[in-house]
Amino acid sequence: MTKDRPDSRPGEAQDVPGTVGDELPPGAVPEEEPPARRSRGAFVRELVVIVVIALGLSFLVKTFLAQPYYIPSQSMESTLDIGDRIIVSKFTPQHSSLHRGDVIVFKDPASWSSGPKPQQPLLKRMVKDSLIFVGVLPGGGDHVVKRVIGMPGDKVKCCTKTGKLTVNGVEITEPYIKAGNAPSLQQFDITVPAGAVWVMGDNRGDSADSRFHDGSSGGKLGSVPMDDISGQVVAIAWPLDRIQSLKSYGNVFARVPKP
């Protein structure tokens, strides 16, 4: 026969040792409460942090290492086609030497300006410029892609009796020129100014390059200032069937002496 606790009444439930409200017996392990669900606010905060970190890393890569650009015209065919996405190294010429034959991206020089360009709606332009700034979208627009033919001080002339260019008096054979194109149909004889390069498109018959913008200035207006160069094109990243590194053509200019 059991004896009721003094403070209990008949029919009342009695506390059972080890349940809530009683001390656990020696050696017992308390049950863990199920983890609380993360609030929607916490998820949003984490997502924002991830996006900010991703954009920050993208900006750093774009600023100091490499940046994507797209090809809007046919002036570099067949090396680069319309719609190609290219990777541009920021190390050249900022931290490594530029060479004849390199393909570069540069800002449209002031001497090449052809007047104001049509403007997109303000909001669309701001969003696009912001995404390009952090490196999410490929650049383009006011940037130009060409191949370096003459370095500072070089004397570039067209053309010999065989229709080829000469650099510092040495005739060069250019395998990168689009099939069916002559090295140049335009005669010129220029000297590249200090701190600038002479550039030409691989599609020589359809490229508004240094020749087009120079007029009769002897190389002063058509040459591109080094300060306007964004970097060297090192690879095609898109489309998938065109992914490749860009071939170096240093051998084309191997016999060219210093100016």
Rank of each mutant, 00 (worst) to 15 (best):
F253I: 02
V127A: 14
V61T: 09
S96V: 08
P257W: 00
V192Y: 08
R40Q: 11
I71Y: 06
E32D: 02
P10Y: 08
P257D: 04
G201L: 03
D4G: 05
I87D: 08
A54L: 15
P93F: 03
S96N: 04
M1C: 11
G201Y: 10
V20H: 13
V156M: 12
Y69S: 11
G83L: 06
G139C: 03
E174T: 01
A36P: 02
A194H: 09
V256F: 01
A254M: 05
M226A: 12
D209K: 10
Q94F: 07
F133S: 14
P193R: 10
M200G: 10
A28R: 09
F59M: 03
L185D: 15
G141L: 03
D202H: 05
C158R: 11
P34I: 04
D214E: 08
H99I: 00
L137K: 07
G163K: 11
V44C: 06
I243G: 05
P30S: 07
P225T: 11
V88Y: 02
E12Q: 14
S184H: 05
G195Y: 11
K155V: 07
V49I: 15
I236L: 02
V233P: 03
I132K: 07
I229T: 09
P138Y: 04
K157S: 14
A194Q: 15
G180L: 12
K62L: 03
K220Q: 14
V16Y: 00
P138L: 06
P121V: 01
L122E: 13
D206W: 05
V88L: 09
G205H: 09
L80C: 05
G139L: 03
R85W: 02
A42L: 14
R37L: 12
P17Q: 12
G135R: 00
D22H: 10
D22K: 07
G11N: 14
K178H: 03
P17W: 00
G150Q: 05
P116T: 04
P183H: 15
A42Y: 13
P225D: 13
R38D: 14
L80T: 01
L246V: 07
T79M: 12
A110G: 00
W238I: 02
I82A: 13
K220G: 01
F91A: 14
S78F: 01
D227C: 01
N251I: 00
I50R: 12
D228M: 03
D129A: 10
G135Q: 01
P34N: 08
V16M: 04
G250I: 00
S210E: 11
I86P: 06
A182G: 11
S217Y: 11
I53G: 01
M226C: 03
L122S: 07
S207L: 04
D4I: 06
G115N: 04
S207V: 00
D7C: 12
K107A: 10
S89Q: 04
P175R: 08
V127C: 09
E171V: 02
V170Q: 15
N181V: 02
K258V: 10
K128I: 01
G21T: 06
V127F: 06
